[in-house]
Design a protein around this nucleic acid. Structure first.
Length: 399
RNA sequence: CCACAGGUGGCAGAACGGUUUAUGCAACAGACUGUAAAUCUGUACUAAGUAGGUUCGACUCCUACCCUGUGGA
């Protein structure tokens, strides 16, 4: 089994190590999202150069294309994407939400116009939840698929990932408390089925057995969150927090609730979160791992991370918008203090021009910088924890 | 010189005798948290070749001129 050890503590924050068959993950750490078995715009060589230790891929997307059987046949995800370091897979549970209730409530960041392109007459959500699992209509071709705990675990095993996630349901902000309770109960039953499926099927003696996360849900309901935290702690060796939405203060409150109601020696992953402020606030509260599309998606959309000393602040999410007219003739690097390949070699002017022109190189250079920025940040946070300087570092950033 | 077609915001390009004249691109800004995102949202353009005419009202109809394209002498 993948093992986790806490090595240093600074308040509730801690630094540790997670050992997998593909190497050690130092925590706290950030996991770039590579939904379709690729961190968009970067190769595994780039990721290594940046210092990325683990990447995340998605069960739902990969089951549709190219298919779990194919990836298994090609030697598993590590070999398929030529990445010899740890890989985490999401269970597909989030897509239950983003393609299901989230679509209808308009809560997901998904564009509704596209549903009409797809199913012009029906305009139905693309996912339907039952006790057994979720029936999906593929966003790629409309074909019908089914994903339940057993299928999800099986696919994750076929992918050959090191960190697995139990299949979970996701509550919606529009739901009543009773509906949230129902959702949570379903998540719990799915969790137990995921665990059983994992017990039966995942027994790889030649490697370290992958880790299975249980997901804490309960929306913004404190009692549900506590219940879910206790349940997940009771049944799983690794804890993920999901179902995050709403305001930052709610998120932080949820983390506090979960941390105080779960075992201290277990790894804690905060699903889908990873803006700069959140990293500080969550690590301070005892979170070890994050995954988030922010650095990669932001990069593609012209949003570039910058350090506090170069204008980054909570107010601008520590970013500048490279598309702004004021950068067209700016000879400085994206971040003048950054040591990444992009900043060592290229100007804001050039990046702004590439972005405006829709040039492919832009995606690489911008993504490289943003991922470097976040990976460098968590590395600095780890260092600060080892030196019990976390609070000081946080103050420097969040002032 | 003749014939035909056409001249609409920065560019491309529709419809229409009648309240604020589409739309796309470009421009300018904003958003982005387990990726249905190289995406989405918003703003601005204060648009009818010129000069007349018809009409309660013209970008839309008529006349002349100017310009562009195609074909012909």
């Amino acid at each position: 089994m993948v093992s986790f050890r806490v090595l240093q503590k600074d308040g509730k924050a801690r630094a540790g190590k997670l050992e997998t068959s593909y190497g050690v993950i130092e925590t706290p750490n950030f996991i770039p999202v590579g939904t379709r078995a690729t961190v968009k715009a970067l190769s595994s060589k780039d990721l290594k150069q940046i210092g990325v230790q683990v990447v995340l891929a998605n069960t739902y997307h990969l089951m549709l294309r190219p298919g779990a059987d194919l990836i298994e046949k090609m030697g598993g995800l590590h070999q398929f994407m030529s990445w010899d370091q740890p890989v985490m897979a999401d269970s597909g549970g989030f897509q239950v939400f983003s393609l299901g209730v989230g679509l209808q409530s308009g809560e997901s960041k998904v564009f509704k116009s596209r549903i009409e392109d797809f199913q012009p007459k029906q305009r139905v959500k693309l996912a339907k939840v039952t006790e057994e699992g979720v029936t999906f209509y593929s966003h790629l071709d409309g074909s019908k698929h089914f994903l339940g705990p057993e299928q999800s675990i099986k696919i994750q095993k076929q992918l050959g990932v090191d960190l697995m996630v139990a299949f979970d349901d996701h509550e919606s902000i529009t739901q009543t408390k009773e509906e949230m309770l129902k959702s949570l109960e379903l998540t719990e039953r799915w969790a137990l089925r995921s665990k059983e499926s994992y017990r039966v099927h995942v027994d790889d003696r030649t490697h370290i057995r992958p880790l299975l996360y249980g997901v804490v849900h309960g929306g913004l309901q404190k009692d549900l969150r506590i219940r879910s935290a206790l349940f997940t702690d009771q049944h799983f060796e690794a804890l993920a927090i999901g179902g995050i939405y709403g305001e930052r203060k709610d998120l932080y409150q949820i983390i506090d609730l979960v941390v105080t109601n779960t075992s201290d020696e277990k790894i804690r992953h905060l699903l889908g979160i990873g803006e700069v402020v959140d990293l500080f606030e969550a690590i301070e509260r005892g979170i070890d791992l994050f995954d988030c599309v922010a650095p990669t998606r932001r990069a593609r959309n012209g949003s570039i991370y910058i350090l506090p000393k170069n204008g980054g602040s909570n107010k601008n999410s520590f970013t500048l918008n490279i598309a702004l007219a004021k950068f067209f003739a700016d000879p400085k690097p994206l971040d003048p203090s950054c040591l990444c390949y992009t900043c060592q070699n290229f100007s804001r002017s050039y990046l702004a021009y590439l972005y405006k022109s829709g040039e492919l190189l832009y995606h690489f250079l911008a993504t490289y910088h943003n991922v470097y920025f976040i990976i460098n940040l968590v590395a600095n946070i780890r260092k600060s924890l080892q030196e019990t300087q976390f609070t000081k570092l946080k103050k420097e950033w969040l002032r």
